[in-house]
């Protein structure tokens, strides 16, 4: 098991190097850099700009830039944000935390709602519960994130129950620790719900389908033939097997949430990684762009890693091979 873990972790390294290199290459292929806009300003002398470019190695070809970035990143220094004029590390970590929190909240919400509903729909197949769940899933899958995010904003503005955008109120710093927490949560609710909505539908349908499959399995008939109560047949014997494909889905689900977060963060003004990536990209804040892509990749790879661990924990056939 430990060997398996170590192997999986080592496999991540070439992947991360590949992704970062590709990002550098693509950034260098697009015309202009952060200083192109600055050079239009007559108050800034060309010498100053040349000096700054040299300072950030932007006068070098992309692979030299990459080499400098990689060397620093290995030591925990993610470069410098030219737009924010602060070290990229502190900028990214704050945003990463926000995105992580948003994705995590959405993940918990989606799974906590989808799994029980999926189980109900499968057990009461053909009933009104099943049909209602199918309708909800249909709506969830067909409404795009963008529309849902806009609807949520409209809802927040119309009712005043939730703040419109942002992660904190203007008076956040004046609140006590509990007030700050509550304020943060209040801002989190709508983006998390929007983000969870699309994911929820898929998970629910998967759960229903898997459980229906396992309910037809012979070991379920055999368990009934041994006199087990229907409750234990479903919740112990069938569910324990139906959950395995969902654990694999967990990894993809995290990836979906991250790309979903990208859209939701931009529309609902959530100060997360997705929004930062967009801003940095438009301003050609190249190190920040690469850092953001790297962070998103790490979150994704980590999600898959966790999913694999869960699967090995859940299924002895994988664990013992």
């Amino acid at each position: 098991m430990l060997k398996y873990l170590a192997k999986r972790l080592l496999h991540m390294i070439p992947l991360l190097i590949g992704v970062s290199m590709l990002t550098f290459l693509l950034m260098s292929l697009s015309p202009g850099d952060y200083f192109t806009a600055l050079s239009q300003n007559p108050q800034i002398s060309p010498e100053t700009i040349a000096h700054l470019k040299a300072k950030y190695h932007l006068d070098q070809p992309w692979y030299v830039q990459y080499f400098y970035w990689l060397k620093n990143a290995a030591m925990g220094d993610l470069g410098y944000s030219m737009a924010y004029k602060i070290p990229a590390t502190s900028l990214i970590l704050g945003r990463l935390w926000n995105t992580f929190l948003l994705s995590f909240a959405a993940l918990i919400l989606a799974w906590a709602v989808a799994i029980p509903l999926g189980i109900r729909a499968a057990v009461a197949r053909g009933s009104w519960v099943d049909h209602a769940c199918a309708m909800v899933a249909f709506a969830g899958l067909s409404i795009p994130d963008i529309l849902l995010a806009l609807l949520a904003l409209w809802f927040a503005a119309a009712t005043g129950w939730f703040p419109v955008g942002g992660a904190t109120s203007p008076v956040h710093d004046l609140m006590g620790p509990w007030g700050q927490c509550l304020d943060y949560l209040k801002h989190l609710v709508l983006p998390a719900v929007v983000l969870a909505a699309a994911d929820l539908a898929g998970i629910m349908r998967q759960m229903r389908g898997n459980l229906l499959d396992t309910l037809r399995a012979e070991y379920v008939v055999a368990a009934r033939a041994r006199g087990m109560t229907p409750f234990w047949v479903v919740y112990k014997h069938a569910l324990r097997n139906a959950i395995n494909p969902l654990l694999t889905m967990f990894g993809y689900s995290l990836a979906g949430l991250l790309s979903g977060a990208f859209i939701v963060e931009n529309i609902m003004a959530w100060p997360g990684l997705g929004r930062l990536t967009m801003e940095a990209f438009f301003q050609k804040d190249s190190y920040v762009v690469v850092d953001c892509v790297m962070m998103a990749t790490i979150l994704l790879v980590a999600g898959n890693f966790v999913a694999d661990l869960l699967l090995a924990w859940s299924d002895p056939r994988i664990r013992l091979k």
Binding site: E218, Y219, A222, A225, R240, N241, N244, S314, P316, R317
Partner: peptide, 11 residues
């Protein structure tokens, strides 16, 4: 039953 491999719960 017929197929013992399928009649025992794999997990």
């Amino acid at each position: 039953f017929q197929d013992p491999g399928a009649s025992l719960n794999p997990v």
